[in-house]
């Protein structure tokens, strides 16, 4: 076994881990916001916007993430910005667009699960549509959505590894760079897998704590 490959390159791997974490946190935040907006738009049924949101969701969900990352880096962003974006920005935009479609469906499902009685109560107290969403329906829905959202975000954390395909040096790409030199793939890949596991497992544990509080 050649664990010294891992030990000797620990600093390099940790730098990659840092990029992975930044990418994951930003993409989770971005897709949560965008997905919630899209989910709410579908839920409240605003004539031109709701069908558009539905089309967006269907379109995004039907294309593999890896193609998104490539298209966005080499086509979409250069077209919009007039110049090429960094690997990190491209990966982040791709992950947000991709995951927001799934989050939107989770949010819509959560909103639809709220009992009519609670909505009737909120309506009859004179709360406006926006107040009902903000104080009653969304908080209740989010409590129910937690398990599904956590699964989705765990998937997102692992999906950040696909950013290696355009050359972003995150955790997976850092590992590749090491074993391309040493030819000892197993040790490096096993180490990386362990790190992904630890991140995802801690997120899962953390969310259980939040769920119990709610």
């Amino acid at each position: 076994m050649h664990w010294e490959d891992v030990l000797n390159n620990l600093g390099f791997l940790m730098k990659g881990l840092g990029v992975t974490l930044q990418l994951a946190v930003l993409s989770i935040a971005g897709s949560l916001v965008l997905g919630t907006v899209l989910g709410v738009i579908r839920y409240v049924k605003i004539p031109p916007f709701s069908p558009l949101a539905a089309m967006y969701i269907e379109f995004v969900r039907s294309i593999p993430l890896i193609l998104f990352i490539v298209f966005i880096h080499f086509g979409f962003l250069p077209f919009i910005l007039g110049t090429s974006a960094s690997f990190f920005v491209s990966a982040c935009v791709a992950l947000i667009i991709f995951t927001s479609a799934y989050v939107a469906e989770i949010v819509r499902g959560g909103l639809n699960s709220i009992e009519k009685g609670h909505i009737d109560a909120a309506v009859s107290l004179g709360l406006t549509g926006f107040q009902r969403l903000a104080y009653i329906i969304l908080p209740l829905a989010f409590a129910r959505m937690m398990p599904a959202l956590v699964s989705q975000f765990i998937a997102l954390i692992k999906d950040t590894s696909l950013a290696s395909t355009i050359g972003l040096i995150e955790l997976t790409r850092s590992g590749e760079i090491i074993y391309e030199r040493t030819y000892h793939e197993f040790e490096v890949l096993a180490f990386i897998a362990l790190i992904y596991f630890m991140i995802c497992f801690s997120l899962s544990k953390l969310s259980k704590k939040i769920e119990i509080k709610i």
Binding site: E115, G117, H118, D120, A121, I136, P139, L140, I214
Partner: peptide, 9 residues
Amino acid sequence: FQQFNLFPH
């Protein structure tokens, strides 16, 4: 209401 419909959160 019959089912009270208090806001559970």
